[in-house]
Design a protein around this nucleic acid. Sequence first.
RNA 1: CGCCGAUGGCAGAUGAUCGCUGGUGAACCCCCAAAACCUUUCGGGGUUCACUGGAGGAAAGUCCGAACACCAUACGGCAGCAUGCCGCGUAGAAUGCGCGGGCAACAUUCGCGAAAGCGGGCGUUGACGGAGAGUGUCACAGAAAAGACACCGCCGGUUCUUUGAGAAAAGCACGGGCAAGGGUGAAAAGGCGAGGUAAGAGCUCACCGCUCGCGGAGUAAUUCGCGAGGCACGAAAAACCCCAUGCGGUGCAAGACAAAACAGAGGAAGGGCAGCCGGCCCGAUUUAAUCCUCGGGUAUCGUCGCACCACGUCCCGCAAUGGCGGGAUGGGCACUCGUCUCGCGAUUGCGGGGCGGGUGAGAUGAAUGAUCAUCCACGACAGAAUUCGGCUUAUCGCCAUCGAAACUAU
RNA 2: UGCCUCGUGGUGUAACGGUAGCACUAGAGACUCUGAAUCUCUCUGUCUAGGUUCGAAUCCUAGCGAGGCAG
Length: 120
Amino acid sequence: MQPPSSFSFPKFRRLTRASEYQRVKREGSVRTGKLLTLGVVPVQDSDLCRVGFVTSRHVGGAAVRNRVRRRLREIVRQHQHHLREGIWIVLVARKDAATADYRALEDEWLRLASRASILL
RNA sequence: CGCCGAUGGCAGAUGAUCGCUGGUGAACCCCCAAAACCUUUCGGGGUUCACUGGAGGAAAGUCCGAACACCAUACGGCAGCAUGCCGCGUAGAAUGCGCGGGCAACAUUCGCGAAAGCGGGCGUUGACGGAGAGUGUCACAGAAAAGACACCGCCGGUUCUUUGAGAAAAGCACGGGCAAGGGUGAAAAGGCGAGGUAAGAGCUCACCGCUCGCGGAGUAAUUCGCGAGGCACGAAAAACCCCAUGCGGUGCAAGACAAAACAGAGGAAGGGCAGCCGGCCCGAUUUAAUCCUCGGGUAUCGUCGCACCACGUCCCGCAAUGGCGGGAUGGGCACUCGUCUCGCGAUUGCGGGGCGGGUGAGAUGAAUGAUCAUCCACGACAGAAUUCGGCUUAUCGCCAUCGAAACUAU
RNA sequence: UGCCUCGUGGUGUAACGGUAGCACUAGAGACUCUGAAUCUCUCUGUCUAGGUUCGAAUCCUAGCGAGGCAG
């Protein structure tokens, strides 16, 4: 089941344009947890799974936001082979994510992803 | 040794696995590439592999500046803003920063002294020009808050009353002198002592303080001594203000370059569509469409600015400038002048190389991470966005050097 | 990234450097059989820290926070 390919997660796997974020916000479905908010939209014209991360200013200072965003990106990178293809995902960190550790964020991600039924 | 203070430095380490991003090199693929097919160099892009670089002392706040870029070359004045003891160094606008000095305040300690206080040592702090240019302010209280207009009070004088034999004493009123004492206040008009006086008063004198003048020391801030004035001169400039000095504005989202579509200008070719003239073929004309060129300004997964070299020295090459010398040619009797060419050494600029020394992040949705293991002092504050200095603020701790007094030991 | 403005009770706002006030809200009481309205009383504050000053919401410095503008 596990593909032998790498766990690489380059830039084209991420959402980069503001219009892409707005499309997820407009057309997607949203699941909200205590630490994270997950937005998902299925995309027809691409079989790639692309993910965007949002850490706004009320999460904390620049160092805290960088740490949270890197942890989220690492979680998605580790679980990228368990995701369905052809979807766009936006992960928004909420305020309590600043003090959560890696394990708590990973549990929250798995719970929200299974509820959104994007896992294989 | 501990505590405290000042200055300087460090900012968990090592390993494994999986990742992100910049650079260099190699392999492969794509674009370039042609109206069909093939295709090179240069150039551009992608994937993989190898090597290698990858947050800070504050990266922060944006409080001051500087570089750099653009705008009217930005000069003079007004306004506005900033700065304010002195000297040197540095950055080269004043500021700032470093070192040293002066003055003031505070704290501690030592000496002298009955005390008040004075002097010395060590240290900390100081937005430390001007209130003897002007305007305004100083609530309440208090007589009075800045040209002393005196409440209680102190001391004389005059009239009257009372007591008294009288001298005289007391009291009321009027008109004077004074500012010692009380009282108010944050602050009361030099302080304190003596003389003096009706009572008082720098009225006079000693000491201290203040101001001015002269002289000495010092580059200066300032300080010391002498003399004079007799006190006029309260606080606040972090109220306005005055004096001196400085400042053009905007900021890398500055700016430079490339550049599609639409619209614009010019031209070419063409004889097909449309309008119009003509009865029609057809012809003339106009506009649009096609193609080419042009300029301005844009979109942009654009490029640069922007990120390993600014620095010193030596060598080589190229270009420019003027100098000296040789040759050719022209004007010219000649001295000499003009042009061209060659050589020599010099200056400047550009490029390359060696040596010395220093340094190494660089994105554009924005990288520098995650997990595990071991060790220890058990990890704080916190994340680059054009660059560089200074300031301020946040911060778990650790290391080094130096140090006054007191305590302990010797 | 650069720039600008502003911080006063729970809310909206005043106040030459001289006792921090007003309105609404909240609480208590009065009136009423009860409630509303009305009347009286009370509570709650100068964003923080330093400085200038006899005295600071006001003046100065530093910080914290909020809002806005440009592209």
